[in-house]
Amino acid sequence: MLLLPALAILVAALGYPLYRQAVMSFQEYGLAQQFGQPAEWVGLDNYVTLVTDSYLWTVILRSIVFCFANAAITMVIGVALAVLMTVIGRGPRLILQIGLLLAWAMPHLASLTVWQWLFDSQYGVINWLLVNLGFDRFAGHSWLIDQLSFFVVATVIVVWMSVPFVAFAVYAGLTQVPGELYEAAEIDGASAWARFRAVTVPLVKPVLLIVMLLQIIWDLKVFTQIFVLQDAGGITAQTNLIGTYIYRLGLGEGEFGLAAAASWFVLLLTVVLSLYYVRVLVREEEL
């Protein structure tokens, strides 16, 4: 059977861990168990510990705020750039597309490294620029030490990385709107804004929905950016999002049972969000 290899590897590398994780989340599974002690069943204890721990809720809330802020900023800039691409000449459009593509093509780790250098407190070009613009307090300013400015840096990086996808996807959607529709609306006396609202928005709405959903799903599981920035000088407890929290709980402190239970939160949250995405896709696509 042709499906078998794909199925086998999915079950082995995703299905079984999922099951294993479910089991582990009901067990007392810490460092002692890691070294061979049998794991003890503790029922819902892990979940109770987590739910009653206010830190988990802080982290979840922080992740959600971070996710929506990033997704919103990314969408606004991305859509604006897509619309901009439709009104400018070929030359500038090509330049804009190249600029966005370069950012998109950068491997995450490389971009994170470059951004750390840009934001470097002593020799970073951003501090240099700010000082030269007259903001003297940015001389030697350390961006990652303070919670709020840590997340500002993280947002700048995430938005910089994510906007190109949004801009290109929405632009692709916009170019599929037939020109005659605009002409007809113009003849009927519709203003530019009215044309945009009545013709463009309904026609690209499916693309916007999908892109926004993907953005939310991706921004909810931001891990690499936060992890690397924490290494570079952020205060871990103040800056953990769900992903880094689980990592530090499980592999850092050896609390595998707790971490497995926390993982289920992420999974459920993501699956709920993605079910909607899947439904939209299924409706559009003939299966």
Binding site: I217, K221, F223, I246, S263, V271
Partner: peptide, 9 residues
């Protein structure tokens, strides 16, 4: 859609 962050443990 399953995030690596939910499974790596």
């Amino acid at each position: 859609m399953i995030p690596a962050e939910g499974l790596f443990i």
